[in-house]
């Protein structure tokens, strides 16, 4: 469970807002298995929030707790264990290794910990998202749309309780979005996992537990 208590990122402190936030400077809980949609216009801190929940940023007031413990208190190895076993992520800026093939990028996340799936699952998921043909291609030669789908599979190949998604479909057409949403839903259901998704649009792709305005 995530619990945000009076959290306010330093860069947003001085920023004037027209509409009040339902997260910043509030007490908010994301309970296990909840599917949270975060919606907000650009520049209001969607990526910042995802990065804070993932433990990448510490520049904020207030406290974020994960399973009852302040995430700022976790050391580097504890953070790594969480990222391997509890929290998976789809970055907005993808974070792929261009020197690796698509398959190796996904495989890396599969074997960082005791594998959740056999390696054949990569092909199965790639087949579903229509990128099986580019699996052995260098990630640098894939299109943005293909790269985004690689990232989605990479996030789903590991065990997790929470999936953080930062504009995960920004490079996908509607048909591919639909396929990705289906796969994500399926994988979250399998694990009874919750997710936090940020998006510019007020879509209804998933069935959300809550939609919060940032």
């Amino acid at each position: 469970m995530f619990e945000l208590n009076q959290v306010m990122p330093f860069p947003l402190k001085e920023k004037k807002r027209e509409k009040g936030s339902e997260i910043w400077n509030k007490h908010v809980q994301f309970k296990s298995g909840e599917r949270i949609k975060i919606t907000a216009p650009s520049g209001t801190g969607k990526t910042t929030l995802i990065h804070q929940l993932y433990g990448l940023r510490n520049d904020y007031d207030g406290v974020i707790q994960f399973n009852g413990k302040d995430i700022k208190q976790f050391n580097a190895d504890q953070v790594a264990i969480q990222r391997q076993l509890s929290i998976s992520i789809i970055f907005q800026d993808l974070q792929l290794f261009e020197q690796l093939t698509a398959r190796e990028n996904i495989e890396l996340k599969r074997i960082l910990q005791t594998p959740f799936y056999e390696s054949s699952k990569i092909e199965e998921m790639a087949q579903l998202l229509g990128i099986r043909g580019i699996l052995d291609q260098s990630a640098s030669t894939c299109s943005y749309g293909e790269q985004q789908r690689i990232c989605i599979i990479r996030a789903l190949i590991q065990p997790f309780d929470w999936l953080l998604m930062d504009e995960p479909f920004s490079h996908l057409d509607l048909e591919n979005q639909h396929l990705a949403i289906q796969l994500i839903n399926e994988e979250c259901n399998k694990r009874n996992a919750g997710f936090v998704l940020t998006d510019l649009n007020d879509d209804q792709s998933f069935i959300y537990s809550r939609t919060l305005y940032l």
Binding site: A76, A80, I81, Q82, R83, Q84, Q95, L112, Q113
Partner: peptide
């Protein structure tokens, strides 16, 4: 940069 990215993705410093 690569090491930073690996750690972001969950590679532990121990690994």
């Amino acid at each position: 940069i690569e090491i930073k990215r690996l750690i972001r993705l969950g590679t532990s410093p121990k690994q």
